[in-house]
Amino acid sequence: MEGKRGWGFYVLGAVFALFVLFLYGPIVTIGILSFQGPEGGLTFPMRGWSTHWFFDLFEQQAVGDFWGAFYRSVTLGLMVMVTTVVVSVMAGLAFRRRFFGASWLFYLTVASLIIPSILVSLGVGLMFNIAGIDVHWSTSGFGSQLTWTLPFGLLIMFAVFNRFDKSYEEAARDLGASPWQTVRHVVLPIIGPSLIGVALFGFTLSYDEFARTLLTAGSYNTLPLEIFGMTTNVTTPVLYALGTMTTVFSFLIIGGALGGVALMRRRRSRAPSDAGRGMV
């Protein structure tokens, strides 16, 4: 692999470039098309440029309850994010030791990831139906989404703890720290940047979740359900404006999370040691 680039590099480089174009091309296209003039349609050519379709997002009749759905999706995303981080960290700490039923719980978590989403959706919907409880995005929807985000959270925690240098913990214990002090002042600060990653997964996977929420959201739609409903009856570029808005929102979240990780890493490598702060 050293030395001069072979022809393989250029061929695979071209494949990679095409792949990136394939990934991002369509989303860039609807970004452009969402600035269609008021007379424009769903495809090229552009009939002038305007922000007409973005203003349409604020009109009830054009997009239904878009802002309500957005509010619900963000709220649900935050709920799922906090739960995913807390539950994954706790379980990640526990899985470092052998305990009764560990393998079963591990397999159950993996099963949660690979069971087709429609089964979770149907099962949770039926369970609430039979129990006589109305499905609602903040109860049944919230639980169904956790079956998708928790496995990702736990697998990330496994990766984190497998790279974790346990001598820090031993040192803390040798110096007389209680288990809680060890976790609070040694373990959590070290794994901090990875927690941002878990939070990113928790929020975005919930914010974009469709299949598991479909039968469990009840009468108030989350944003992806609302958008899907629109695809059948909205035939104007307002659909693209909506797509562009949500994608920009997702990019802001991702950018914020990645920026946060980079910042924490940089501060850590620069800042002086805060050893002993846990004592005062």
């Binding site: 296209t29 609807i30 769903l42 974009d208 469709f210 992806p224 659909l239 797509g243 997702s250």
Partner: peptide, 22 residues
Amino acid sequence: VCTVPFWTSNIIRMISWIPFLG
């Protein structure tokens, strides 16, 4: 660059094929 789309909406990514394939 390869993983960012994973954190965006699948529905939007499907819709975004309309102007290409129509």
